[in-house]
Design a protein around this nucleic acid. Structure first.
Lengths: 116, 116
DNA sequence: ATAAGGGTTCACGCCAACGTGAAGGTCAAG
DNA sequence: CTTGACCTTCACGTTGGCGTGAACCCTTAT
């Protein structure tokens, strides 16, 4: 599958897909003409990447996640994972804090508007 | 109170405080020598601003929030507020989505690490 | 007088995830 | 052979919230 099709089927732009490749998140094969050739499994991978990006994770972290998962499949060492776990925990904590902050803000606004 | 003291008492950098002023979030008085002079109430205001920034709100939205709150104090019109409310709701929704995304990511990682 | 430690206004730098041309190959169809 | 719809690689633009000098003024202590 070429980049246009993958873009269409994942909802990511072609530019984004090339960007993911730059960041090492996606490594498509190349056709003789130089075109990127993607596998079916890349659809799932792109979905995961998009979700992690949306969750506020950086591409560095995502790449480490992917590497960790790959070595996990092969039953190889998972030593790099603990700090990855820590990073995910930290992000979750930050998101909690953000939710609290916005909840307080809304409460203050509700008091002012006498709403609810 | 001068900018250095406010910075110290709020944890925000002096640069950040000037930035907030550029964005219209903070309007300190000026001494004869041109120095910014802040009121005690600005400490609370800066705390609110920091919280809203941390929550992912942009300075435009925050300024509208402040204006809305000010006019609210004086019992004046609150017509500008509905879209502000909508914006806060949208942000809250986005944060929910992010939490879901990171939760799924952590679950996938847990499966791989056979943890829990 | 001068050094130290405040303050001021520009104005460029940064980071991250792409958007957006530019300039040019590839390939099937008319 | 040419149009058109794909693809390729640069490489600069964008958005936001500041960081980080630069160059300069104000005030107090030595």
């Amino acid at each position: 599958m070429l980049i246009g099709e993958l873009a269409e089927r994942t909802g990511a732009s072609a530019r984004a897909l090339r960007h993911y490749e730059d960041r090492g998140l996606l490594v498509p094969a190349r056709d003789v003409n130089g075109y990127r050739v993607y596998a079916e499994s890349d659809i799932l991978r792109v979905a995961q990447i998009k979700a992690m990006i949306a969750a506020g994770l950086g591409t560095d972290t995502i790449r480490r996640y992917i590497d960790c998962a790959r070595t996990g499949d092969q039953g190889v060492s998972l030593e790099m994972c603990p700090d990855l776990r820590a990073e995910l925990d930290a992000l979750a904590t930050r998101l909690d804090a953000q939710q609290n902050a916005i909840r307080k803000t809304r409460e203050r606004l509700c008091v002012l508007t006498s709403d609810h």
